[in-house]
């Protein structure tokens, strides 16, 4: 069962008389119970995509199916079963956290609303702040309030747009755990965007990379990492980094940087270059102090995709 099916979606905006393509011919699907990451640099089209899925922005062309329905036709069915949470749009700031959550609980016709609100406040450690106005909260507290609102109706479909921005590492970790637990408990489908790659790697089953509104690739984190063919090696000698530099150049390897007796260089992921280098260093009588091979992370993938065109 596919809970999100996006087909040939296109959206343009006019900016200073010019047409700007925000989303271009975007197609993907998300299966039920999947946490799907949407990644890309600023302006890649992630938020516009979520806004179109949430019914806030009308697409120029293309189709969207949510929970197996056309949201334009079965709008009531879809919207009652989905929710959106973003760090960028606070709830009504003159209302307290509890008042805001009461309003949304009523909007979604939540049964036992007060109990649900208390549970969410406790989960996100907001109980003590429940009667504070949103305008007086820190950005992290507002973000957590937005997450409470996102879960108020136990959604089957959840859009989380940079929902952990501004959270301290401890709360961010707890938030990820709550999202994971909620997904496990309910089997809901989550579309997730974030600039924190470790978060995406931890949470998402599959990841889509977008650039300038276009979809570049969809894969699991492991598959994506394989797309980066180079590994970085950090090699430190007791002495003699000049010889090492020469040696690396002879081997045709790219030196990325370094300091004192340490050099960082790139090797082909499948090659035997490290072995060769170490053997040659021994022959030259240079003693190795430390060696560290850094495998690509999602950050590298992000940078790889972001810089690919440049």
């Amino acid at each position: 069962m596919r809970d999100i099916v996006v087909s040939k979606l296109r959206k343009t905006f006019k900016s200073k008389g010019k047409e700007v393509v925000a989303v271009d011919n975007l197609s993907f699907y998300v299966t039920r119970g999947e946490i799907f990451g949407l990644l890309g640099a600023n302006g890649a089209g992630k938020s516009t995509t979520i806004n179109m899925l949430a019914g806030l922005v009308l697409q120029d062309s293309g189709t969207i199916k949510l929970l197996g329905k056309d949201p334009k036709k079965d709008w009531e069915f879809v919207k009652n079963r989905m929710n959106v949470s973003t760090a960028y749009f606070p709830l009504t700031d003159v209302l307290t956290i509890r008042q805001n959550l009461r309003v949304y609980a009523k909007l979604y016709n939540v049964k036992n609303a007060e109990k649900k609100i208390d549970e969410l406040l406790e989960q996100f450690e907001l109980t003590k702040l429940a009667d504070k106005k949103v305008v007086t909260l820190s950005s992290g507290e507002r973000t957590r309030t937005a997450l409470c609102k996102g879960l108020i109706n136990d959604p089957q479909l959840l859009f989380l747009d940079e929902c952990t921005v501004g959270l301290d590492p401890d709360i961010a970790e707890k938030t990820r755990r709550i999202i994971k637990d909620y997904q496990k408990k309910t089997g809901c489908t989550i579309l997730f965007t974030s600039h924190y790659m470790h978060e995406v790697e931890e949470l998402c089953d599959r990841i889509a990379f977008m650039d300038e509104g276009k979809l570049l690739t969809i894969a699991t984190a492991a598959q994506l990492k394989k797309q980066v063919k180079k590994h970085q090696v950090e090699l430190t000698l007791e002495d003699g980094s000049d010889e090492l530099k020469e040696l690396l150049q002879e081997e045709g390897l790219t030196v990325l940087g370094g300091r004192d007796n340490m050099l960082v260089f790139e090797i082909d992921a499948k090659s035997d270059d490290v072995n060769t280098i170490v053997q040659r260093l021994v022959k030259l009588g240079l003693s190795l102090k430390d060696i560290h091979i850094r495998k690509p992370t999602l950050d590298d993938i992000f940078i790889h995709f972001a810089r690919r065109k440049k």
């Binding site: 019914g55 909007l107 979604y108």
Partner: peptide, 16 residues
């Protein structure tokens, strides 16, 4: 007021 508090986002992503 909904514009000022940037609240239209939450309001119209709900079933309202």
């Amino acid at each position: 007021e909904d514009f000022w508090s940037r609240n239209l986002y939450h309001l119209f992503s709900s079933p309202v």
